[in-house]
Simulated assay, not measured.
Amino acid sequence: MADLVIKAGYATVTEEDVLRFVGFVDPRKEDYALFRQSLDGGPVWFEVNDEDFGADDAVACAAIGPEGLVIDITPARAARFGYANRVAVRLKSCEGADAALAALRLMGVPGL
């Protein structure tokens, strides 16, 4: 069971300057989950709802399952997420989810 849940209405993939951004947004609550990485590779930044709740190398593993996209937080980074250990991004009615998941695979998110 996830500690945090984002019910994504849409997903975006954007490349700006030297960074790739992949976001999942719940427009009703303005909640989001965001992944960011340099186009050259390197660590993946993950944040939920605010930059203060994010960190590089925070994703221990990600998987697609009944809850949607489930992200397990690296134990050493859990404090950055209010001690949440798992984030679920519900994809049932998420526009653009396929492109976003493909971008996460390109970024090398573990488990995808």
Rank of each mutant, 00 (worst) to 15 (best):
L91D: 04
A60F: 10
G96L: 10
P66C: 01
G108C: 11
G82N: 13
G96R: 08
E15H: 08
W45S: 00
A58C: 03
D52V: 08
A55H: 01
A79L: 06
I64A: 11
L106W: 07
A79T: 06
V5H: 01
D40P: 08
T74S: 12
R80K: 04
D26C: 14
A100R: 00
K29E: 09
L112K: 10
E47I: 05
Y32R: 01
L39N: 11
D98C: 06
N49L: 13
G96V: 07
L112W: 02
Q37K: 07
K92I: 04
A100P: 03
L112A: 05
L19P: 14
D40G: 11
A8R: 09
E16D: 15
G54H: 02
A76V: 14
D72S: 14
E95A: 12
G108T: 05
N85A: 10
A8I: 07
T74N: 12
R28S: 13
G9E: 05
T14Q: 15
A78Y: 07
L101M: 11
A55Q: 06
D26W: 15
G96Q: 09
R80G: 01
Q37R: 11
P27V: 13
G82K: 11
V22T: 12
A102E: 03
D31G: 02
D57A: 10
A76Y: 12
R20Y: 10
D50L: 11
G68W: 08
F46G: 00
G68R: 12
A11P: 03
R86I: 06
A102S: 08
L4R: 07
V70G: 06
A102D: 03
E15Y: 06
D72N: 14
L19W: 15
D40N: 14
V5M: 04
A60N: 08
A102P: 01
E16Y: 09
A63F: 07
D57Y: 06
P27M: 10
I64S: 02
G54D: 03
Y10Q: 02
I64Y: 06
R36M: 09
P110C: 12
E30I: 05
F81E: 11
T74Y: 04
L106M: 12
V89F: 04
A99Y: 06
C61S: 00
G54P: 05
T14K: 14
A62H: 02
V13G: 02
P110D: 03
F53V: 08
Y32K: 00
T12A: 13
L34V: 13
R80P: 00
D31I: 03
E47R: 07
V25P: 04
A33T: 02
R77H: 00
N49W: 06
Y83G: 06
A99V: 11
L19G: 13
A62F: 04
D26I: 15
E47M: 03
A76N: 13
E16L: 09
P75I: 10
I71R: 02
D40F: 15
A102Q: 08
R77P: 03
A8M: 11
L4D: 00
K7P: 03
R80A: 04
M107H: 12
L106F: 07
A102R: 11
A2K: 02
A76S: 15
A58V: 09
M107T: 15
T12Q: 09
S93F: 06
D17H: 12
Q37W: 10
D52Y: 05
T14I: 10
R36E: 10
F46W: 01
L91G: 00
D56H: 11
C61M: 02
